[in-house]
Design a protein around this nucleic acid. Structure first.
Length: 734
DNA sequence: AGAGCCATTGTTTTT
DNA sequence: CAATGGCTCT
């Protein structure tokens, strides 16, 4: 049933390399006798190296083949890095080894055993965007107001239940509110079944049930996997824990690696307690601690340690380093978010002036919305940058439209895809005709596709004229794409779909720049298809089906282009597992970081602090932190205090960039305009001004404790200058 | 049927 | 303030 390479290809290496490359603690973990292991690995302590070496060690010294290894990570990046490093260490080692994210491996299981999992062979994976649409449709069809029953809340609820391993039938009905939620959950389950759709949480839950309900299968995998490795164990949720536990048979050893101080996914169900639970539920677990940090300078590490020491809920661990102290951490108090962004731009310029590369710099922020001010500033100064997260490529509307066609080609029962593109581009099918199709589908228990086919072929169809032609045309398009391109290569297939669906044409007509970019995106999709190399070739899937799965599972996980020298912008969450020579953590204000949604609850506050800790510990040589006194949120601007996290860093590690201002009496602008004495504008920090010789600049500071009041202005072209306030002629820019 | 306008509403983090 | 959704007008 399962055919894979079982040859043992690993015996060419000696063990000497371990002695040179690893410190004592690392060596102990790597060379330990077989058994259950818990490795508590602090940030930058060589966690991945230990994991990789341990796998290599087990292969070399315990006559196991790669076939016996299961290694689970959270991100594709981590999985890729792991298999790459193992491969370079042990010849050809990864063949037959299962290395991947929870979601990938679960997906793989379901593809291999779709029948036992009670799925259609051509089931599709939906992302959270599709999921939300589905929930919206259900809420509407149940005649519930989406004010009271916010689709996002319901989506959250459903995923939460699935993460706990609960089906709709297992949920406890405590009150009216939950009752309704569970009803919707039921509807959602049915809809997914009918449409052969599987969401992210479903991948895990379904594959868990698959193994639990099929003892033969379970036994097969338990015997196959002699050694299981789990990375970032602090981020596992309930179902993932159970999932892992299932794989561990009586003869399976398991190694988990984690750091309780870096647990930042509690909000989506991750349970740090899984670490302690692991030591309880698996017998004779040996605990290893990696506490020497190799990444950061001593000052950065001290700051991070001091910060995290404020958390009560810790397993306890103090990182140390032999590195040199490095520079104190610059702390910049910006006037507002623009000033903050400009300061960051200057940091980038300085770094580059000193011979650094832009791609060595990462700017980290709490929420995606913060990227805007940064983008504007970087754009304005022509500094190449790259944003991770935010609106991802495959989430763009035009791409989703294209994918909907491809999904229908793969599976006609995909109603979500059907609804999305039945009238995109417009072909004369309105809400009324669509409702007829929906009604027919509902009464006859058909998919929308099947209903359409029946309706257009009935002699006395309720569907008339234009709409009927439109639907018939649509069905022909889908069928034609499949018939014609069935043996074509993937890129041509996608290209033909875009042509034949009319999507290309609909964007080609328009002239606006916005629409042009959409056309570019479509071409980029074809390009992505041509670049696509299927990995799991052993699965019996068409290249198209593999491509579609790949897109939903790997969307947005595009790593940095090594040739592109761009500043890296990302949230603190997506920075986990990465490191950069120069890290800037911005927006350290109460209410933003820690976020106000988390400030009330002590547990969630600790998670915010861990997030900050993660941010600080990404830095290798230089760390810089900033906050803004005033920040434009949605309607108004709000004045924030500096984050408590800043105050938790010992003063002597910080270098405040600002000068102390001593203002005893108002200081006025000398402007080019003629103002009456009493209406002369006051200097304001953050104010944009223009100087005849120096051009545009921003007021950074002012002081009047000397005989002459003076003002510090940061000019875009000429850098920082102190000017005499009453003499320099400045005009105010709005 | 479709475009465009107005109003409402939501603002954390994501595999 | 932006983005989405619903409504109206053509």
């Amino acid at each position: 049933m399962i055919t894979e390479d079982t040859t043992n290809t690993t015996s060419t290496m000696s063990n000497e390399w371990l002695k040179d490359e690893l410190n004592d603690a690392q060596q102990a973990a790597v060379t330990a006798p077989l058994g259950h292991q818990l490795v508590l690995a602090g940030a930058g302590s060589g966690k991945t190296r230990v994991l990789v070496c341990r796998i290599a060690w087990v292969l070399l010294n315990h006559s196991l083949s790669p076939f016996n290894i299961l290694a689970v990570t959270f991100t594709n990046k981590a999985a890729g890095e792991m298999s790459g490093r193992i491969a370079s260490m042990v010849n050809e080692a990864v063949r037959g080894m299962w290395v991947g994210t929870f979601h990938h491996l679960a997906h793989r299981l379901l593809r291999m055993h779709w029948n036992e999992a009670k799925l259609a062979e051509n089931f599709q994976i939906i992302d959270s965007d599709d999921q939300l649409r589905l929930v919206k449709r259900i809420v509407k069809s149940m005649n519930l107001s989406d004010n009271k029953w916010a689709p996002k809340k319901i989506q959250w609820f459903i995923n939460g239940q699935k993460d706990l391993g609960l089906r709709a039938k297992d949920c406890v009905r405590d009150n009216f509110y939950q009752d309704k939620m569970i009803d919707i959950y039921y509807e959602y389950e049915t809809l997914c079944e009918q449409n052969d759709l599987v969401d992210f949480s479903e991948l895990l839950l379904r594959s868990f049930e698959l193994l639990r309900n099929n003892p033969d299968l379970l036994q097969h995998y338990q015997q196959r996997f002699k050694h299981v490795f789990v990375d970032e164990f602090q981020d596992t949720n309930s179902i993932q824990y159970e999932w892992i536990k299932l794989f561990c048979g009586p003869d399976t050893f398991i190694t988990v690696v984690g750091d309780d101080d870096q647990s930042i996914y509690g909000w989506r169900g991750a349970k740090v307690e899984n670490i302690q639970r692991f030591t309880r539920e698996f017998s004779n677990v040996t605990v290893y601690r990696l506490e020497q940090n190799y990444r950061s300078t001593a000052i950065i590490l001290k700051a991070a340690n001091a910060l995290i020491a404020n958390n009560d809920n810790r397993l306890g661990k103090e990182l140390w380093t032999q590195s040199n102290p490095g520079e104190p951490i610059p702390l910049y108090a910006a006037y507002n978010e623009q000033d903050e962004a400009n300061y960051i731009v200057n940091c980038v310029k300085d770094w580059v002036h000193q011979g650094g590369a832009r791609k060595e710099i990462s700017v980290l922020y709490r929420s995606n919305a913060q990227s805007r001010a940064l983008e504007e500033a970087l754009l304005h100064h022509n500094i190449p940058y790259r944003i991770y997260g935010g609106v991802r490529f495959f989430e763009r509307a035009e791409i989703k439209d294209s994918l909907a066609y491809l999904r229908l080609v793969t599976n006609r029962n995909d109603d979500t895809a059907f609804e999305r593109v039945i009238n995109t581009p417009t072909r004369g099918i309105g809400a009324r005709s669509l409702e007829i199709v929906r009604e027919h589908a509902r009464t006859h228990q058909l998919s929308l596709w099947q209903a359409s086919c029946e309706l257009i072929h009935q002699a006395d169809s309720i569907l008339k004229g234009k709409a009927r032609n439109g639907i018939a045309q649509f069905c022909e398009i889908i069928n034609a794409i499949e018939d014609k391109t069935i043996n074509w290569n993937l890129a041509d297939q996608v290209d033909f779909t875009l042509k034949h669906s009319g999507l290309y044409a609909s964007y080609e007509q328009a002239t606006s720049e916005l629409v042009r970019s959409k056309l570019e995106n479509l071409k980029e999709l074809v390009n992505a298809a041509s670049q696509f190399v299927p990995i799991h070739t052993d699965l019996e899937m068409t290249p198209l089906a593999l491509f579609l799965s790949h897109i939903t599972l790997d969307a947005g996980d595009t790593g940095a282009d090594p040739y592109e020298d761009a500043v890296q912008l990302m949230t603190l969450h997506s920075a986990k597992g990465l490191e950069f020579p120069f890290v800037i953590v911005c927006g350290l204000e109460e209410g933003l970081f820690p976020h106000k949604m988390s400030s009330h609850d002590p547990d969630r506050l600790e998670e915010e602090r861990r997030l900050c800790y993660v941010g600080f510990t990404r830095a290798m040589q230089k760390l810089c932190i900033t906050y803004a006194t005033s920040r434009r949120a949605y309607n108004s601007e709000f004045i924030g205090r500096r984050s408590r996290f800043i105050n938790e860093i010992p003063k002597n590690l910080l270098a405040e960039v600002r000068f102390k201002t001593k203002v005893s009496k108002p200081v006025f602008f000398q402007t080019t305009a003629n103002f009456a004495e009493d209406e002369k504008p006051l200097y304001q920090i953050g104010q944009r001004v223009y100087h005849q010789n120096f051009g545009e600049g921003t007021v950074l500071d002012y002081e009047d404790h000397r005989t002459q009041p003076r003002v510090l202005i940061r000019f875009t072209q000429h850098g920082d200058k102190w000017l005499l306030a009453t003499i320099s002629k400045l005009s105010i820019l709005k």
